[in-house]
């Protein structure tokens, strides 16, 4: 067996990580590179949610319409830690006495870890308890049951927020922490490294092959001795944990809002996977990059027309690459096949 470190997927993910590392260091040079820092932060978020979705959808073949529930849980955890625990005065105070009106790295790390722990706990709990019931379903039924899951959690979270916060149930406003966009960038970067390598090692591990077997033929996999039910629950929980990371990252940067639970966020995660191509590790990454760049470039050039043009582009792309970009590349350029794992 080829050493893990020489496998193409590992090399590609390392290249991507290095790219973001370099971008992060270049970000400090001048104002224009700062622009790309902000875009890079968004891009990491898009790739991150795409890969989180990939574990359940692309690897295991289970399409989930409600994966945004975990993004929502992540952002709510941050909102809870920063705002609902009634610490916002303390945080703002720390920001004022700290150097340059910024809270210290230690305190930031404490809040960050707290959010992580809270989000992971809730995500795993939901994924295991609800997954135990709904992962018996297949295909469209599973997909729709996750919508149910998403909205149940969303409305419960909303009720909690509404009764506890002065801002109503829709959003929580972060206290001023004096953080710069570079801080947010590195916070995203840490989560990005975790996400991309976890997603990759899952893909090439025995667990990943088990998931692939489930995707191709679940009954056959069961007969071959794969404990399909347990594998599916693991995949669902892992996907949930990774998705919740990105909720945390976003909420630190932009404050919590109920919008992270909405159906369209799940659909974006799904679209990234389908555009890239189902069944591969590279697919969701390519899909996320293309989706993000399309959306951003339309937004800054055609303004109000963005949604119309984006929608039309999606229709055209699907009509001509039904198997996703990776499927198309594999068909057209067989030599690339070993790089597109």
């Amino acid at each position: 067996m080829v050493s893990v470190f020489r496998r193409p997927g590992f090399i590609i993910s390392t290249i991507i990580v290095l790219f973001f590392l370099v971008l992060g260091y270049l970000g400090n040079i001048n104002a224009i590179s700062r622009m790309y820092v902000s875009n890079g932060t968004d891009l990491m978020y898009y790739i991150g949610i795409g890969l989180a979705m990939a574990i359940i959808m692309s690897y295991a073949g289970y399409v989930s319409f409600g994966q945004a529930v975990f993004v929502g849980i992540g952002s709510f955890s941050t909102g809870y830690v920063l705002v609902l625990m009634n610490r916002s005065n303390i945080i703002s105070y720390l920001a004022k006495i700290g150097s340059g009106g910024r809270i210290s790295n230690t305190m930031l790390a404490v809040y960050f870890t707290e959010s992580l722990l809270l989000a992971i706990t809730i995500s795993v709990f939901i994924a295991v308890v609800v997954g135990y019931a709904v992962l018996r379903l297949r295909g469209a039924f599973f997909a729709i049951s996750t919508i149910g899951l998403d909205y149940v959690v969303m409305y419960l979270v909303k009720y909690i927020t509404k009764t506890r916060s002065p801002f109503g149930g829709e959003e929580l406003l972060n206290p001023s922490m004096g953080l710069t966009d570079m801080t947010f960038y590195w916070m995203h970067f840490i989560l990005f490294i975790i996400t991309i390598y976890v997603a990759y090692f899952v893909k090439i591990s025995k667990f990943g092959y088990g998931l692939a077997a489930i995707r191709e033929d679940e009954d056959a996999a069961e007969i071959m001795g794969v404990n399909t039910f347990r594998y599916k629950i693991y995949a669902f929980a892992l996907s949930g944990i990774l998705a919740s990371f990105w909720g945390i990252a976003e909420a630190f940067r932009k404050s919590y809002s109920i919008g992270y639970f909405k159906l369209d966020k799940s659909i974006i995660m799904l679209v990234e996977n389908v555009v890239g191509g189902i069944g591969s590790f590279i697919g969701p990454i390519i899909g996320s990059i293309i989706y993000y760049l399309l959306e951003w470039s339309f937004l800054t050039t055609v303004g109000q027309w963005t949604l119309v043009i984006l929608g039309a582009t999606v229709v055209v792309v699907v009509a001509f690459f039904p198997e996703g970009i990776v499927g198309l590349l594999k068909k057209r350029f067989p030599r690339l096949r070993k790089w597109l794992e």
Binding site: I267, L270, V271, V274, V275, L307, V308, I309, L310, G311, A312, T313, V314, V315, V317, V318, A319
Partner: peptide
């Protein structure tokens, strides 16, 4: 699903 998503947002 993808195609109808595109049509929907348009």
């Amino acid at each position: 699903l993808m195609a109808t998503f595109g049509f929907g947002i348009a």
